[in-house]
């Protein structure tokens, strides 16, 4: 499929994306050894859908998101939005394309400039990209406030005068301001209280329906991912180990890591007694600096065989769209 024109219904295509951090000091300062944060990730996000990337810390899910947004340096690979190869764009070209992809961050406190008023924060991308006349911008910002469930009068307030949930609404309004083709949501609800999470998730779903948005949704919370995503990719140590549509992944997980992850999620449907009967992973993920030779999950895998420690299993399609990287699946 490489090289071919993107199908019209594909909003984002990522091909063999690699992000390695070396000893050089830049956006992420000083590492002595090369960190294979993202190591050969490929996927496609259909327009109007929500594509979820789930994984634990160190899986590379957030770095994948930042690399797609060109906020982290891409080592190799291709990122294609619509039919523009974003990964090749240089400074000024990239700047002019930025209106097409936006981000919603995890932390509603550090993601809003404390010295700017709420209206100015939402308006900033419009100003920077010179979209519309001054009056159009005024109207647009007021409309965005209403759209995300805030009142236009609240434009005059400063971020610290909003609650966490409201701040996340502001973050969404800012991301929506340029009418982007893709919104990358990096753990957008994990810093919020549970009752507020539901409000934001519902808002995101409503906006998607109204505006036909495409989301790339990064999360560690399987419950949230199961709720909001149409397609889900599970990442482990910089690679996708399993990818399928929501129903297929959650009813029929094939990779041992996915299975273990699902088992580990505490749920109100379980209780003290049945908790003990479940399989548990031992240990922590190995570090992304010294990667093992074979399957990256082999050291923690309950079913690993000799072969798993020798060769890395490729990500293969098992049945309509359900891809797994495991010899035993």
């Amino acid at each position: 499929m490489s090289g071919a024109q993107a199908k019209p219904d594909i909003a984002l295509r990522v091909e063999d994306l690699k992000v390695h951090f070396g000893g050089k000091k830049r956006f992420f300062s000083g590492y002595a050894n090369t960190v294979h944060a993202v190591d050969g990730v490929s996927f496609e996000v259909p327009a109007g859908k929500t594509f979820g990337i789930v994984g634990e810390s160190g899986s590379g899910k957030s770095t994948t998101a930042l690399a797609i947004l060109r906020l982290a340096p891409i080592t190799s690979g291709k990122v294609v939005l619509g039919d523009t190869v974003i990964s090749d764009l240089e400074k000024e070209e990239l700047r002019s394309e930025r209106s097409r992809f936006q981000i919603v961050f995890q932390d509603p406190y550090s993601s809003l400039d404390p010295r700017k008023r709420a209206g100015a924060i939402v308006r900033e991308p419009l100003e920077l990209m010179k979209i519309g006349t001054l009056k159009e911008r005024d109207e647009k910002v007021a409309a965005l406030f209403v759209q995300v469930g805030l009142r236009p009068e609240q434009q005059a307030l400063f971020p610290h005068q909003f609650s966490g949930g409201q701040r996340q609404r502001l973050g969404l309004a800012r991301a929506l301001s340029t009418r982007p083709e893709l919104i990358v949501c990096d753990e957008p609800v994990s810093a919020l209280d549970v009752a507020i999470q539901a409000q934001i998730l519902n808002l995101m779903a409503d906006l998607q329906k109204q505006l036909g948005l495409t989301y790339l949704f990064i999360s560690h919370d399987l419950g949230v991912v199961q709720h909001i995503c149409d397609i889900v990719a599970v990442m482990y140590l910089g690679q996708i180990v399993e990818q399928a549509d929501r129903v297929s992944l959650f009813t029929n997980p094939r990779h041992p890591y996915t299975k273990a992850l699902l088992e580990a999620v505490p749920s109100v449907h379980q209780n003290k007694r049945n908790r003990r009967e479940r399989i548990r992973l031992v240990g922590d993920p190995p570090s992304p600096i010294n990667l093992p030779k074979g399957c990256r999950f082999a050291s923690r895998c309950p079913v690993a065989e000799a072969r798993c420690h020798q060769e890395a299993p490729p990500l293969l399609e098992k049945e309509n769209g359900h891809q797994v990287a495991c010899f035993l699946a």
């Binding site: 998730l201 199961q226 009813t251």
Partner: peptide
């Protein structure tokens, strides 16, 4: 508190699109 959290469900096909909300703060 129980209903507003998207808990893993054994039947993901049947998940409703909206979560129950506790409005306000």
């Amino acid at each position: 508190l129980i209903a507003c959290v998207p808990h893993l469900s054994a039947n993901p096909a049947a998940i409703s699109e909206r979560l129950m909300e506790i409005p306000g703060v």
